[in-house]
Amino acid sequence: MIQLHQVSKIYKVGGQDFYALRDVNLTIEKGEFVSVCGTSGSGKSTLLNIIGCLDFLSSGQYLLKGENISQMKDEKQSAIRNRHIGFVLQDFALIHNQTVLYNVMLPLLFSKMSFRKVKAHAMDALACLGIRDQARKKINQLSGGQKQRVAIARAIVTQPDILLADEPTGQLDSHTGMETIRILSELNKKGITLVVVTHDPTIAAMAERTITISDGRIVTDLRNE
């Protein structure tokens, strides 16, 4: 599903090269649940951004479902991101002055789906997360846990192959956080490839496989028992 070959991401900082990722080789199979751990600034989020086609790699190759993403322009990468990848972020990345329904509809508004079907699909996604009754509410009227459910509903509304979660429980209490991870695990069991960036060892242990990054390199890649 996801193949990274000698991938590097370099930023210019004060005229010098800073390696956010250095020669990363990684393969993630379809349906896998992978956690990515590391200290702050180790390159976890950069790795997720590269996998999610949010950022361009400086060197190397990225194959997604056998297709070479590295050479593609922004329009094509955005289309892939829209169709195949869903994101769940720590800060939810929701539009606060809009309704729950609008936020969940957003990826479908950029897809080729007809407008008539967009609303129906969005309501289905909300129903999957048990928050269909919140559709007309504004985001700023919801609790943290509800916001994260909306974010997950938005992430799955296009029926993506991959879900990328960057510290999805970072702004949630432990109970709500575990509930969120449970929802993501359920989605993984349905066949969605799940990659979770986390500081929390409990959450990391829930994955089938844990990758540890330090200074832009993968230092360990272990299967969890």
Binding site: L54, D74, Q77, S78, R81, I95, F110, T158
Partner: peptide, 9 residues
Amino acid sequence: VWYLCGCSK
């Protein structure tokens, strides 16, 4: 957020 959801720059 639009970009995140697949809208190109």
